[in-house]
């Protein structure tokens, strides 16, 4: 039996440490942990035509794009992230508001030092001819504005950072 080294997977923002073993083409779970929580399961799996066949008879279709795994199982689609060993964190920049999609910054309504309330409208983005409001994630003071009107930004780009009111 070949026990493989633990790998880390982000599912819905939760970080899982997973260790599996393999013998004669059959995979088993050795351990599966998320913080204090540990999951036991007797489920096993084999590979079938580039996909994963579970011991309960269900087949998962898989694909990898960048660091993301895409898994289709029981008519549902999931996106999980592989975390490189040694990478510090997958958390977003604290207090940062990021672009929800690629697009153009239409208007910026605040400047550095402005005091804002949670949910306050800070800037407007445009993508696919639709406008989207970027609002304050919490109350506080604007510490950095990373973009200007007319600027094109990628998805996940940090637009504005704020120091939360204590």
């Amino acid at each position: 039996m070949n026990v493989m080294k633990s790998i880390y997977i982000d599912a819905e923002g939760l970080r899982w440490a997973v260790s599996i073993s393999e013998k004669d083409g059959t995979f088993n779970i050795v351990s599966m942990q998320q913080e204090e929580q540990s999951i036991e399961s007797t489920v096993s799996a084999t590979l079938r035509k580039g996909n994963v066949l579970l011991s309960d008879g269900r087949k998962a279709t898989i694909a990898k794009v960048g660091d993301d795994w895409w898994v289709h199982l029981s008519a549902r689609t999931y996106r999980l992230k592989y975390i490189e060993p040694g990478s510090s964190s997958v958390d977003e920049v604290e207090g940062g508001m990021t672009a929800p999609m690629p697009g153009t910054v239409l208007e910026v309504l605040v400047i550095k030092g402005d005091r804002v309330q949670a949910e306050q409208h800070l800037m407007t983005m445009e993508a696919m001819k639709m406008e989207h409001k970027i609002v304050a994630s919490e109350s506080g003071t604007i510490s950095v504005v990373h973009c200007s009107e007319g600027q094109k930004v990628e998805q996940g780009f940090v637009l504005i950072e704020l120091d939360a009111t204590e």
Partner: peptide
Amino acid sequence: TQTSLEVIFTAAIAQNSGIH
């Protein structure tokens, strides 16, 4: 739907077996 353990298991197999 919440990600089930089978889904995480599937991703782990994919990563470890190098299919991806």
